[in-house]
Structures are given as structure tokens and as C-alpha cells.
Amino acid sequence: MLLTPIGPIKLFVNNDEINFKATKVSLDKRCSDVNGRYLIEYKFSNNSKVQKIRCCLPSIDIEGDIESGERFETIAFYKNSTKLTIGAEASFGLETEYGYDYTGNYLSNGIQCETNSSTKNQIFHFGASWIQPFTEDNDHQTWYGADPTLMGVSKER
């Protein structure tokens, strides 16, 4: 679990909560004002069973805003003066075109990646970033801050 100003981020695999290590990542010029930036990793081993890997805020009671980009899926939550973004390297609906062997979707409280019988063993990377207070001038920084590929990790294709 990763504690954030708007609630704990948890990781679930097929509805079972799993422990994970959240690694604090240093800030760069694209996200210099964020208050928290973390990498969350899940090591997937293909046992020919579908796995639904959810990175989410189970206690959140507000609807998130989808802020996706090319090969980058994100959802942002605004609460009081805080903006929090959860991101994953993926292309929901375009996975074949971009060479991903998994799919996924947005949840009301986070992001879900879904494997299939041909998904290769790999590490799934999620990013989390938040800023307090957010403004019109700085709220884009959580988008960059939550991008795992800007944290020095990338999927091999």
C-alpha cells in the first residue's frame, strides 16, 4: 500500500490484495513541483491464467478523469487542493497495433491491466504522482510524474 493525501493506493490481482514495494522516484524538469512520485511494480509470471492487475484507490468516492496519451494510460483524481494521477504503459483498445500482449481498462478508482494466455512473463509498471496545491499552471505535472517510461523503465517488445 502507498499512502497518498487522498487515500491509499493498493494493488490487486484477481481481487486479491497483494503487497508491493513503492519506489520513490526523483523529480525532473517535467514534474518539478509534484509532492510525491512513485513507481509500483508487479512481477507477472504466465501460468496460462488470466490475471486482472488493478492499481487503484479503493477508498476514493470521486470519479476520475481519463488523461491518456500514446502508449500511456492515466486517470487523475481531484480532491480539495490535491491532484493525484495513476498511470501505466499501455494502449487500451490498440494493444495489438502497439505490440502489447495485454489489454486493460479504466476503473472508477484506478487502472486495470488484463493478461491473457499468450502474455509473456514481465514486470508491469504503474506510476503514481500527486501535487498540492494544483493550479492551472502546474496540474499537468502529475501526468509526467506518473509515466513509468519517464522513470527509467520500459516494456520490451
Rank of each mutant, 00 (worst) to 15 (best):
T23K: 03
T23H: 01
K24H: 06
K24M: 09
S26D: 13
L27S: 12
L27I: 15
K29R: 08
R30I: 09
C31A: 08
S32M: 11
S32C: 05
D33W: 00
G36K: 02
G36L: 03
R37G: 05
Y38V: 06
L39Q: 02
L39N: 04
L39R: 07
I40T: 05
I40Q: 01
I40R: 00
I40N: 01
Y42L: 00
Y42K: 00
F44S: 00
N47W: 01
N47G: 04
N47A: 03
S48M: 10
S48L: 12
S48C: 02
S48K: 15
K49V: 04
V50D: 02
Q51D: 14
K52E: 13
K52W: 06
L57V: 06
P58S: 03
P58A: 04
S59K: 10
D61K: 12
I62N: 06
I62C: 08
G64M: 04
D65Y: 11
I66V: 15
G69D: 12
G69Q: 10
E70A: 12
E70H: 14
R71A: 06
F72S: 03
T74C: 14
I75H: 06
A76D: 13
A76S: 15
A76K: 11
A76M: 15
N80Q: 12
N80E: 15
N80C: 03
N80L: 08
S81L: 13
T82Q: 04
K83E: 08
K83R: 14
I86H: 06
G87R: 03
G87T: 09
A88W: 02
A88M: 07
E89Y: 04
F92V: 13
L94F: 11
E95C: 05
E95I: 11
T96F: 07
T96D: 11
E97P: 03
Y98Q: 05
Y98A: 01
G99M: 03
G99D: 09
Y100G: 04
Y102G: 00
Y106A: 00
L107G: 01
S108D: 12
